[in-house]
């Protein structure tokens, strides 16, 4: 997957979890929690969705890599490059 495709994949997942949020203006390097009503349960949902859709495991110790959209893309890039 390209970087853009990965970005789209993450945005799609978050949009499904938070159907009422506007995903248009998400900034890459601002914490997702500051831009969206994302709580810890939502992060779990993202992790579970990544596993279901792409067979990717995000171990608990790496959860902080999902802090911003940018850091999430960077973290997932090596794991999703071959998909």
């Amino acid at each position: 997957m390209t970087k853009d495709a990965i970005r789209q994949a993450i945005v799609d997942i978050i949009q499904e979890i938070l159907p009422d949020e506007d995903m248009g203006g998400i900034e890459l390097d601002k914490p997702l929690r500051d831009q969206l009503e994302l709580d810890s349960m939502d992060f779990l949902d993202i992790v579970m969705e990544l596993r279901k859709r792409y067979h990717i495991e995000v171990p608990e110790k790496d959860y902080m890599e999902l802090n911003t959209l940018g850091s999430t893309i960077a973290y997932l890039e090596p794991k999703m490059a071959n998909l």
């Binding site: 349960m41 779990l44 949902d45 992790v47 579970m48 596993r51 279901k52 495991e57």
Partner: peptide, 9 residues
């Protein structure tokens, strides 16, 4: 939900 995630893993 939290446990479902653990089971799924």
């Amino acid at each position: 939900v939290i446990v479902a995630n653990e089971v799924d893993k």
